[in-house]
Amino acid sequence: MAPPHRPTSPTPARLFLIFAQIGLTSFGGGLSAWMLRAFVRERAWLSEEEFLNGLGIAQALPGVNVTNMGIWIGYRLCGTAGALASVTAVVIPPAILMVLIAIAFAWLERFPITRPALDGAAAAAIGLSAWMGITAARRVPRRVIPLAIMAASFAAVAWLHIPLLWVVLAGGSASVALEYIRLGNER
């Protein structure tokens, strides 16, 4: 299962640094895309499939996706110490920065360049979300049921504005049950 080429191996300290960096620089949200970039593309510590499996679970469970992913990836790579290092890094430094930004905000708003600079960064950040969605969609098996579930969950959230709780509960349990039956028939 291990990727053939590992330039560096994961340690709790490295996890802390990577997650702190993601937490502090991920303007515009979509932190899971930054994680996919850092752990799969840049370091190959996880396969794309392992990452997307974790993401599916992190999204279905209550909790912030990012902290869920931090614990999931941290535990998977370095056990309890890894989980603790990752979640601390993804919460505490950005929390401090957030308060500092709130203090600086009133002052920054005076400059006319602030607005367009933020709009541009926000637009590029949407690219992250789009890339992440395309990567995840590419990995969905080309069978009728998974493709229909993907399309239905997109429509439910994007067009019908159904609360996520119901999408996850109804869509998630139907999808998991169908997959369970399919895995049973495979044997």
Partner: peptide, 13 residues
């Protein structure tokens, strides 16, 4: 396997 298509749809949304 069941949650991945759901996650993909939700990210695209």
């Amino acid at each position: 396997g069941g949650l991945r298509p759901l996650a993909a749809g939700m990210i695209l949304a």
